[in-house]
């Protein structure tokens, strides 16, 4: 299983971060940080980053700056 924002989805071999986000229905925009097992994945690399079973994806949204 892969968790996306604490929700579990089925893992498939070769699944990318992009695939997992599509599967989960979570939306992202330019201000979203996609974090996989505490590592930030650049938005233009989501399709390249392949997941392993058990990984955890968190979506964090920047609402401020400093």
């Amino acid at each position: 299983m892969i968790t996306v924002n604490n929700r579990e989805i089925n893992y498939k071999i070769g699944m990318s971060v992009y695939d997992a986000l599509q599967e989960s229905g979570e939306s992202i925009n330019n201000m979203t940080l996609v974090v996989v097992d505490e590592k930030v994945i650049a938005l233009d690399k989501l399709k390249d980053e392949i997941l392993n079973n058990g990984m955890n994806i968190k979506l964090l949204h920047i609402v401020s700056g400093g």
């Binding site: 940080l33 974090v35 938005l43 233009d44 968190k58 949204h61």
Partner: peptide, 20 residues
């Protein structure tokens, strides 16, 4: 809990500004 600033600090802003 869902704020990048709590999770990583304000350095997280660079992930958005750098890409855009």
């Amino acid at each position: 809990k869902k704020d990048p600033f709590h999770n990583f600090g304000t350095i997280s802003t660079i992930e958005a500004t750098g890409a855009n």
